[in-house]
């Protein structure tokens, strides 16, 4: 057993070039990471500079923007008659979102409980892909579903009380959209709960229901809350469904049978619209985008922070 030639020669590669290329690679990878920061800066810069065109206008006041209850940027060609109060758009957004949450939170949570606590491996292997397929359905398809199926059915069952475009059908479609997200994030949170807790509960004579609802869910609560928040911000930012199904009239009401233009719906409508570029009305879309961005950003931020806290607690 003689020493192999390659070890006798001991001709090793010089490490100098390696060190240099390593540096270059690290720098280029760091640049990749910087890109994400640049994107955030880009978004904020764009929103600020473009919405300045709106907020600088004499027709607009900050307090009016935040408190007025009429939004007629698309309806009023004449700036003097235009009303810029974000409240109706917010109300539309929250109406749709609320309906979506009423659908997706309980359904998503209970499905998650089922998946993590009860379902056999075989059922899981069917149910999980199904949920993933729903998660992968393009939102424009769900929008189509909303105007083609949900809205007519609602009108049929309510004897015409719902208008063609209404907050409910959009909300239901958005709810379907959020369901897989709520479900998979909550399930992750519940699976992270250590087995020992469940064993402890069963050991005390708890039924499966009591174990899951009184032990597992509270233990995973922060994760579940963060799932809710993330789904909430997803619902707020959802665009195509509301553009197709929620209607184009900003309304300040609680009636879910009525049209409800949302912030995203307004942005799409304004982009598609014939309103002239450069007008205050046009720039108002950036003011709406700022509001939208701020709300979703805060939601996600809080959701992320809660999620991180929770993750650390079991590691």
């Amino acid at each position: 057993m003689t020493l192999p030639k390659s070890l006798q020669n001991r001709e090793f590669r010089s490490t100098r070039w390696g060190v240099l290329s390593e540096r270059l690679i690290v720098i280029s990878l760091a640049l990749c990471a910087t890109a994400t920061v640049l994107i955030t800066i880009g978004i904020i810069y764009m929103l600020i500079t473009q919405s300045a065109g709106f907020f600088r206008s004499d027709a607009v006041t900050m307090s009016g923007f935040l408190t007025d209850t009429e939004w007629t940027a698309l309806q009023s060609k004449d700036l003097a008659q235009a009303k810029f109060g974000i409240m109706p758009l917010l109300s539309g957004t929250f109406r749709v979102t609320l309906i979506a949450m009423i659908i997706s939170l309980p359904l998503g949570l209970i499905t998650a409980i089922y998946l993590s606590e009860f379902a056999s491996a075989k059922i899981r292997s069917w149910l999980k892909p199904t949920l993933e397929i729903i998660a992968g359905v393009p939102t424009v398809v769900l929008g189509y579903f909303a105007i083609l199926v949900i809205s007519p059915s609602l009108q049929l069952f309510s004897d015409g009380a719902f208008s063609t475009f209404n907050a409910t059908s959009a909300g239901i479609a958005v709810g379907i959209l959020c369901l897989p997200m709520v479900c998979s994030l909550s399930e992750d949170a519940m699976r992270a709960v250590p087995r020992s807790l469940r064993e402890g509960a069963y050991g005390l004579g708890c039924t499966p229901f009591e174990t899951s609802v009184k032990v597992v869910v509270p233990a995973a609560l922060s994760g579940i809350i963060s799932a809710f928040l993330l789904a909430f911000s997803r619902a707020i930012g959802e665009t195509m469904v509301v553009a197709l199904a929620a209607g184009t009239l900003p309304t300040m009401t609680l009636d879910p049978t009525q049209q409800a233009q949302t912030m995203t719906g307004f942005i799409v409508e304004m982009i598609k619209s014939e309103s002239e570029y450069g007008t205050v009305q046009y720039y108002s879309l950036y003011a709406v985008a700022v509001t939208l961005f701020t709300i979703t950003f805060l939601m996600t931020l809080v959701g992320q922070i809660i999620r991180r806290r929770f993750k650390e607690s079991y590691q």
């Binding site: 978004i43 997803r234 930012g237 985008a289 939208l292």
Partner: peptide
Amino acid sequence: NLAGVPSIVYGLL
């Protein structure tokens, strides 16, 4: 956070 930004905002960007 970027993952939570609505896609339409990216469209505007």
